[in-house]
Simulated scan of single mutants.
Amino acid sequence: MEDSAASKRSVTVADVAKAAKVSKATAARVLGGYGVVSDEIKDRVMAAAAALEYRPNELARSMSTGRSGIIGVVVGDIENAFFSLAVRGISDAARLAGYNVIIANSGEKLDAEKSAVDLLIGKRVDGLIVTPARCDGMGHLQDVRRAGVPLVLFDRSIPELGVDAVTGDDRDAAITATRYMVDQGHRHLAYVSAMDDEGGGLIDTGRISNSAVRERVEGFVSVLKEAGLPHPLHSVRFGATDQQQTDSVVRRLLSEASPPTALLASDSLVGLRIFRSLQSLGLSIPRDVSMISFLDADWTSVTVPPITVIDQHVYDMGKLAGERLVARIERTPLAAERLRVGTSLVVRGSVAAPGG
């Protein structure tokens, strides 16, 4: 009797084409993830491939198409729910188009990002999605462009690079959240970020090397200025890189002569650290301190109280980035652009009037 595993390996594109009642060329386009076919034909071919347990010969496909069928993704911090959800969206879009994904983590370090990009290019990926650790360090990304490898930036934008970028509407999101706290009566606020403190206090938002952080800080500061609140840049604090550092940042803020009554966390990891810091100090949310966090992470809806958040629709961002990269790989004629995915404020129980 023929070994079943050997039988599965022997299923060919011609077998799938016959079962789907299409030509071999059409089946090859669907299974290879290139060219254009109708949804009805694609569904028939994919159903036949699944029924026959077809397994593609990746080496043969790469030789015939000149593609590896793989895209590379470099994210800032896979521990952060923002990036893990984004990768899910990217992977789903890639899989639907017939691509596999290799993921690398930079830890928000430029050198690690450069090494990851070099590694992925060495693997002959068909395209790259990169979250740049610094928007002022793009030499390696220019090299990717010169090599002709399609590139899409995620979460951060570098206009000078001239490539697609998929981001949130960071400035408007920060404006919405900050204005909500100001409208509740808060006059002493702080923005807390995990971004490394690059030395000294913030004197110029234009010097912030991360475009997403820069735009959020600009939104936060603009509302404080609009409300006539003094020293808005003093209200921006970096360095909340782990729990110990966040504890230190929060303690310093609360020990000031006019301590903040409301905090805006730059992401869900920082938000959770702030929540723990306030708990350890015996402070009640929102009675003693109000807070809002970026990202509707799972933990934010199960705390007491549940946390008001900026929902960034991250899965949609990832899916859009994946789709855009596939379009670039398949040479769809599109102008390079920044694609912004809107956000929404989800009001829960972590913001109240100060002293309420």
Score class of each variant (00 low, 15 high):
Asp118Ile: 02
Ile41Pro: 02
Ala116His: 06
Met195Ser: 09
Asp316Trp: 01
Ala112Phe: 05
Ser38Gly: 14
Ser4Tyr: 12
Leu264His: 05
Leu161Phe: 06
Asp155Glu: 12
Ile129Phe: 01
Ala133Lys: 01
Thr308Gly: 10
Asp204Gly: 12
Asp183Pro: 05
Glu198Ser: 12
Leu283Tyr: 10
Glu198Asn: 13
Lys21Ile: 00
Arg216Ile: 10
Ser91Cys: 06
Gly168Asn: 09
Phe294Gly: 03
Arg251Pro: 00
Met195Asp: 12
Val16Pro: 08
Asp267His: 00
Arg251Thr: 14
Ser222Gln: 05
Val217Ile: 14
Leu263Pro: 11
Ala177Gly: 04
Ala94Val: 06
Arg67His: 14
Gly137Phe: 04
Ser115Thr: 11
Thr241Pro: 00
Ala212Met: 13
Arg9Tyr: 04
Val163His: 02
Ser64Tyr: 10
Arg29Cys: 05
Val22His: 04
Asn100Ala: 14
Asn210Gln: 15
Lys123Thr: 07
Ala194Asn: 13
Asp170Trp: 00
His313Ser: 11
Gln243Gly: 03
Met63Ser: 13
Asp172Cys: 01
Ser280His: 12
Pro260Gly: 02
Gln312Ile: 06
Ala5Pro: 00
Glu215Ser: 13
Val192Pro: 02
Arg145Asn: 12
Gly322Thr: 00
Arg214Tyr: 11
Val217Met: 10
Ile158Cys: 12
Arg276Phe: 09
Leu253Ala: 03
Ala51Asn: 15
Leu52Ala: 15
Thr12Cys: 05
Val144His: 05
Leu272Ala: 13
Lys42Gln: 14
Thr167Ile: 11
Ala50Val: 11
Ala327Gln: 10
Asp136Ile: 04
Lys8His: 09
Pro132Glu: 02
Phe220Lys: 05
Asp196Gly: 06
Val346His: 00
Leu52Met: 14
Ala50Phe: 07
Asp169His: 08
Ser277Pro: 08
Ala165Pro: 05
Ala257Ser: 14
Phe238Gln: 04
His140Arg: 06
Lys21Val: 02
Thr178Asp: 07
Leu52Ser: 11
Leu325Glu: 00
Val163Asp: 06
Val45Ala: 05
Ala93Glu: 08
Ala212Trp: 04
Gly356Asn: 06
Ile90His: 06
Leu120Val: 06
Pro232Ala: 03
Ala165Phe: 03
Ser211Trp: 05
Lys42Cys: 09
Pro150Leu: 07
Arg237Ala: 11
Gly206Glu: 13
Asp196Met: 10
Gly239Asp: 07
Ser222Trp: 07
Arg348Asn: 01
Arg171Ala: 13
Met46Gln: 14
Val302Pro: 04
Ile285Phe: 10
Glu2Pro: 13
Ser68Asn: 11
Val221Lys: 08
Arg287Glu: 15
Val74Thr: 11
Asp126Asn: 05
Ile121Tyr: 02
Cys135Gly: 10
Ala14Asp: 10
Ala227Tyr: 08
Ile158Ser: 09
Asp197Ala: 11
Ala321Thr: 00
Thr300Glu: 09
His234Phe: 08
Ile121Trp: 03
Ala133His: 06
Thr261Val: 05
Phe294Met: 13
Arg156Gly: 10
Thr246Trp: 00
Gly349Arg: 01
Ser10Phe: 02
Leu281Phe: 10
Leu263Asp: 02
Ala173Asp: 07
Lys319Glu: 05
Leu161Ala: 08
Glu79Ser: 15
Val163Thr: 12
His186Gln: 11
Val249His: 02
